[in-house]
Design a protein around this nucleic acid. Structure first.
Lengths: 218, 218
DNA sequence: TAGATTGTTAATCGATTAACAATC
DNA sequence: TAGATTGTTAATCGATTAACAATC
């Protein structure tokens, strides 16, 4: 019954919808039309309806969308209605920042292990989780059926580590190292390349300066 | 002489080109054709040529592209041939991680100030930079002509802070808070929404499982 | 010169927006 | 029922890919 493949452009927008719907829910809003949501989120109503319809109709003609229901449906689509176990590889500041981010826990991402290659960190704790030697990571993942590995190690260590991870049943790598990882098809890689983001910001500073100096071109 | 506006899709790809060209340069590679780069980067040669031609021809027929020259030109386009001063607002783990990231320094992003609302942090140091009370941030930015503010504070503090920042001559906000900021046109906002990234990863785990269980659909 | 490879135009593909019939 | 608003088809827009003439 071939679910048509949904484009990553659509998927990338779902977390933002989810965030706004969560806010609305908290404010006690029960129903919302695509037009109202369009006004708040600054995207077209058409796009909103198209996006939701990729997954079947969540709305009702003449009524709009039920906020709570839509919120729940999106959480199912994103798979955050279930728990996901994760380990953090690299217990530096970035690793600690992510481990400590309670919002992830709230969304069902359960922090189960931390690993580093610095012996002075062994046995120290990040939120009740003990930091272990990095060469224990494979066994730990196998034994604890870990789904997600968060890579917060330098790029030169990231490549061989990704390679190792492929053989212990991991489902996904959340990669913060500034390098593209090569892994088999069935392993998901989600990259967070902070330096890329910062360079884009830098470009847009230039662009903005040009625009607003030369008499507001656009 | 209206430089045509270049799409953000193109801009988003520049840092990746830049990274690969840097690697090639380090390896001592002097010239490369769009086809060779295509093989390494897994994007079409056609896209590579189109992307570069948005900025005028960097290559030469029959020869290809000079790696060093192309590298320099992209760094100019991205504006990372110049220094950019930045302050970090929120001296938690994430703020520290970013402050400590030496690669940014290498690219000309100079870390000049850190701010937090936790008094126990005042006077402590992050890479030679003293953590100051958060209400000094506006004066500091004005007096030191800071270009970029990195927001690593919780979402409820981020919105009023962004508002304050608009009035002290900041050029850009690198926003790590999980909220959309409203600022005037001329201020650049670059968002890093980590939770969005993690949700996308979660979706793709689901997707991948479906694909590889139901007989490799795609 | 001949071969290689760019710069650039044209063709295709996909994503976004507009429009409207279906329906609550 | 009449009004509102979705679901969905059609039109538009933009981005990617293919093709090839220009040129080193």
């Amino acid at each position: 019954m071939a679910d048509k493949e949904i484009s990553q452009a659509v998927i990338s927008r779902l977390p933002r919808y989810f965030r706004y719907l969560g806010d609305l829910k908290e404010k006690g809003v029960e129903r919302i039309s695509s037009q109202e949501l369009s006004d708040i989120m600054k995207v077209t109503a058409s796009q909103i309806r198209q996006d939701f319809n990729n997954f079947g109709g969540f709305g009702q003609q003449g009524y709009g969308y039920n906020v709570g229901y839509l919120y729940d449906e999106i959480s199912k689509i994103l798979g955050i209605d279930k728990e996901h176990s994760l380990v953090i590889i690299g217990a530096g500041h970035l690793g600690k920042a992510i481990a400590g981010y309670t919002n992830f826990t709230r969304r069902g991402f359960v922090f189960k292990g931390a690993f580093d290659c610095d012996p002075t960190l062994y046995g120290t704790r990040i939120r009740d989780v003990e930091v272990r030697p990095i060469d224990e990571v494979e066994d730990f993942i196998k034994n604890n059926k870990i789904e997600i590995a968060v890579l917060t190690i330098p790029k030169d260590q990231a490549v061989p580590m990704a390679h190792k991870l492929c053989n212990c049943g991991i489902k996904a790598i959340w990669n913060f190292a500034h390098v593209d990882l090569e892994v088999p098809d069935y392993i998901v890689v989600e990259n967070v390349h902070l330096s890329d983001s910062l360079m884009k910001l830098s470009y847009n500073i230039n662009r903005s300066e040009k625009m607003f100096n030369s008499g507001e071109k656009n």
